[in-house]
Protein backbone atom coordinates (compact mmCIF):
# COMPACT_ATOMS: atom_id res chain seq x y z
CA UNK A 1 0.00 0.00 0.00
CA UNK A 2 1.30 3.43 -0.93
CA UNK A 3 0.63 4.92 2.49
CA UNK A 4 2.55 2.20 4.34
CA UNK A 5 5.54 2.62 2.01
CA UNK A 6 5.48 6.40 2.34
CA UNK A 7 5.24 6.20 6.13
CA UNK A 8 8.20 3.81 6.25
CA UNK A 9 10.20 6.31 4.16
CA UNK A 10 9.23 9.12 6.57
CA UNK A 11 10.62 6.93 9.35
CA UNK A 12 13.94 6.98 7.49
CA UNK A 13 13.90 10.78 7.45
CA UNK A 14 12.58 11.32 3.91
CA UNK A 15 10.86 14.72 3.78
CA UNK A 16 9.41 14.15 0.31
CA UNK A 17 7.69 11.06 1.69
CA UNK A 18 6.11 13.19 4.42
CA UNK A 19 4.55 15.28 1.66
CA UNK A 20 3.17 12.06 0.15
CA UNK A 21 1.71 10.99 3.50
CA UNK A 22 0.24 14.49 3.82
CA UNK A 23 -1.36 14.34 0.38
CA UNK A 24 -2.85 10.91 1.09
CA UNK A 25 -4.19 11.69 4.56
CA UNK A 26 -4.53 15.45 5.21
CA UNK A 27 -8.24 15.54 4.32
CA UNK A 28 -9.03 12.75 6.72
CA UNK A 29 -6.85 14.04 9.57
CA UNK A 30 -8.11 17.59 9.07
CA UNK A 31 -11.66 16.22 9.27
CA UNK A 32 -10.77 14.80 12.70
CA UNK A 33 -9.15 18.03 13.92
CA UNK A 34 -11.96 20.20 12.59
CA UNK A 35 -14.67 18.09 14.18
CA UNK A 36 -13.03 18.10 17.62
CA UNK A 37 -11.62 21.65 17.62
CA UNK A 38 -14.80 23.13 16.17
CA UNK A 39 -13.16 25.88 14.10
CA UNK A 40 -10.75 25.98 11.18
CA UNK A 41 -7.92 28.16 12.51
CA UNK A 42 -7.27 26.02 15.59
CA UNK A 43 -7.84 22.82 13.65
CA UNK A 44 -5.18 23.89 11.15
CA UNK A 45 -2.73 24.66 13.97
CA UNK A 46 -3.38 21.24 15.46
CA UNK A 47 -3.01 19.59 12.03
CA UNK A 48 0.46 21.16 11.66
CA UNK A 49 1.49 19.73 15.01
CA UNK A 50 0.08 16.34 14.05
CA UNK A 51 2.30 16.04 10.96
CA UNK A 52 5.32 17.23 12.93
CA UNK A 53 4.61 14.38 15.36
CA UNK A 54 4.25 12.00 12.43
CA UNK A 55 7.65 13.17 11.17
CA UNK A 56 9.20 12.56 14.56
CA UNK A 57 7.52 9.26 15.36
CA UNK A 58 7.20 7.49 12.01
CA UNK A 59 10.30 5.43 12.85
CA UNK A 60 8.39 3.96 15.79
CA UNK A 61 5.34 2.96 13.74
CA UNK A 62 4.73 -0.78 14.09
CA UNK A 63 2.70 -2.18 11.20
CA UNK A 64 1.94 -5.34 13.18
CA UNK A 65 0.02 -3.34 15.80
CA UNK A 66 -1.99 -0.87 13.75
CA UNK A 67 -2.74 0.07 10.17
CA UNK A 68 -1.01 3.26 9.00
CA UNK A 69 -4.27 5.19 8.81
CA UNK A 70 -5.35 4.10 12.31
CA UNK A 71 -1.98 5.13 13.68
CA UNK A 72 -2.24 8.54 11.98
CA UNK A 73 -5.88 9.06 12.97
CA UNK A 74 -5.08 8.26 16.61
CA UNK A 75 -2.28 10.85 16.62
CA UNK A 76 -4.64 13.42 15.07
CA UNK A 77 -7.48 12.69 17.48
CA UNK A 78 -5.21 12.77 20.53
CA UNK A 79 -3.65 16.02 19.32
CA UNK A 80 -7.06 17.62 18.87
CA UNK A 81 -8.20 16.41 22.30
CA UNK A 82 -5.03 17.78 23.90
CA UNK A 83 -5.88 21.14 22.34
CA UNK A 84 -9.48 20.99 23.56
CA UNK A 85 -8.33 20.24 27.11
CA UNK A 86 -5.80 23.10 27.06
CA UNK A 87 -6.65 26.53 28.40
CA UNK A 88 -6.75 28.00 24.88
CA UNK A 89 -8.95 25.16 23.68
CA UNK A 90 -11.46 25.58 26.50
CA UNK A 91 -11.68 29.32 25.94
CA UNK A 92 -12.19 28.88 22.19
CA UNK A 93 -14.85 26.21 22.65
CA UNK A 94 -16.74 28.30 25.20
CA UNK A 95 -17.11 31.05 22.62
CA UNK A 96 -18.59 28.68 20.01
CA UNK A 97 -22.33 28.34 19.59
CA UNK A 98 -23.86 25.21 21.07
CA UNK A 99 -23.44 22.56 18.43
CA UNK A 100 -25.76 19.75 17.53
CA UNK A 101 -23.19 17.17 18.55
CA UNK A 102 -25.49 14.24 19.14
CA UNK A 103 -27.24 14.63 15.83
CA UNK A 104 -23.93 14.61 13.97
CA UNK A 105 -22.45 11.78 16.03
CA UNK A 106 -25.43 9.56 15.29
CA UNK A 107 -25.44 10.08 11.56
CA UNK A 108 -25.23 6.93 9.52
CA UNK A 109 -21.63 5.74 9.35
CA UNK A 110 -19.71 7.09 6.41
CA UNK A 111 -17.76 3.95 5.73
CA UNK A 112 -14.19 4.39 4.60
CA UNK A 113 -13.60 0.78 3.67
CA UNK A 114 -10.42 1.33 1.75
CA UNK A 115 -8.69 2.71 4.81
CA UNK A 116 -10.14 0.91 7.81
CA UNK A 117 -10.62 -2.83 8.00
CA UNK A 118 -14.28 -3.57 7.39
CA UNK A 119 -14.49 -6.71 9.47
CA UNK A 120 -13.32 -5.20 12.74
CA UNK A 121 -15.60 -2.27 12.09
CA UNK A 122 -18.56 -4.59 11.73
CA UNK A 123 -17.87 -6.25 15.06
CA UNK A 124 -17.41 -2.95 16.90
CA UNK A 125 -20.63 -1.58 15.44
CA UNK A 126 -22.52 -4.74 16.32
CA UNK A 127 -21.26 -4.47 19.91
CA UNK A 128 -22.07 -0.74 20.08
CA UNK A 129 -25.57 -1.53 18.84
CA UNK A 130 -26.06 -3.83 21.82
CA UNK A 131 -25.61 -0.90 24.22
CA UNK A 132 -28.46 1.29 25.41
CA UNK A 133 -29.06 4.00 22.81
CA UNK A 134 -28.26 6.82 25.24
CA UNK A 135 -25.00 5.23 26.37
CA UNK A 136 -24.01 4.55 22.78
CA UNK A 137 -24.69 8.18 21.81
CA UNK A 138 -22.54 9.43 24.69
CA UNK A 139 -19.63 7.13 23.85
CA UNK A 140 -19.85 8.21 20.21
CA UNK A 141 -19.92 11.87 21.19
CA UNK A 142 -16.84 11.35 23.38
CA UNK A 143 -15.06 9.79 20.42
CA UNK A 144 -16.17 12.16 17.66
CA UNK A 145 -16.63 15.45 19.52
CA UNK A 146 -14.03 14.94 22.23
CA UNK A 147 -16.76 15.48 24.84
CA UNK A 148 -15.83 15.18 28.52
CA UNK A 149 -17.87 13.49 31.25
CA UNK A 150 -18.89 16.94 32.49
CA UNK A 151 -20.09 18.08 29.05
CA UNK A 152 -22.03 14.86 28.47
CA UNK A 153 -23.66 15.06 31.92
CA UNK A 154 -24.73 18.64 31.24
CA UNK A 155 -26.17 17.82 27.83
CA UNK A 156 -28.06 14.78 29.09
CA UNK A 157 -29.06 16.64 32.26
CA UNK A 158 -27.92 13.91 34.63
CA UNK A 159 -25.49 14.07 37.56
CA UNK A 160 -21.82 13.57 36.72
CA UNK A 161 -21.70 10.31 38.69
CA UNK A 162 -24.60 8.91 36.71
CA UNK A 163 -22.94 9.75 33.40
CA UNK A 164 -19.68 8.23 34.57
CA UNK A 165 -21.48 5.06 35.62
CA UNK A 166 -23.40 4.78 32.29
CA UNK A 167 -20.26 5.11 30.22
CA UNK A 168 -18.07 2.88 32.37
CA UNK A 169 -20.67 0.12 32.29
CA UNK A 170 -21.10 0.63 28.57
CA UNK A 171 -17.36 0.39 27.96
CA UNK A 172 -17.06 -2.78 30.05
CA UNK A 173 -19.96 -4.36 28.15
CA UNK A 174 -18.33 -3.30 24.92
CA UNK A 175 -15.12 -5.00 25.97
CA UNK A 176 -16.93 -8.23 26.87
CA UNK A 177 -18.72 -8.20 23.54
CA UNK A 178 -15.50 -7.63 21.58
CA UNK A 179 -13.66 -10.33 23.50
CA UNK A 180 -10.20 -9.91 24.90
CA UNK A 181 -8.38 -11.30 21.91
Amino acid sequence: MRLAAALAAVGRGDQAALRQVYDLTAAKLFGICLRICGERASAEDVLQTVYIKVWERAGQFDATRASPITWLATIARNGAIDWRRSVAGRAARDSLPEQAAFAVADEAPRADQSLVAAEEGEQLHRCLDELEARTRACIRSAFFDGSTYAELAEREKVPLGTMKSWIRRGLMRLKDCLGDG
Binding site: A26, A27, G31, Q48, T70, L124
Partner: peptide, 24 residues
Protein backbone atom coordinates in the same frame (compact mmCIF):
# COMPACT_ATOMS: atom_id res chain seq x y z
CA UNK B 1 -7.37 2.85 21.21
CA UNK B 2 -7.18 -0.29 19.07
CA UNK B 3 -10.66 -1.47 20.09
CA UNK B 4 -12.17 1.88 19.11
CA UNK B 5 -10.06 2.23 15.95
CA UNK B 6 -12.79 1.08 13.51
CA UNK B 7 -14.67 4.29 14.37
CA UNK B 8 -11.91 6.15 12.51
CA UNK B 9 -13.63 5.00 9.34
CA UNK B 10 -16.50 7.41 10.00
CA UNK B 11 -14.86 10.84 10.04
CA UNK B 12 -16.01 13.23 7.35
CA UNK B 13 -13.08 14.51 5.28
CA UNK B 14 -12.30 18.22 5.20
CA UNK B 15 -9.72 20.09 3.13
CA UNK B 16 -7.17 22.10 5.12
CA UNK B 17 -5.91 25.40 3.74
CA UNK B 18 -2.80 25.35 1.55
CA UNK B 19 -0.92 27.33 4.20
CA UNK B 20 -0.83 24.29 6.49
CA UNK B 21 1.71 22.37 4.43
CA UNK B 22 3.88 25.47 4.03
CA UNK B 23 3.89 25.91 7.79
CA UNK B 24 4.87 22.26 8.31
Amino acid sequence: EAKLAPLHGEWADAEPGAAVWNAI
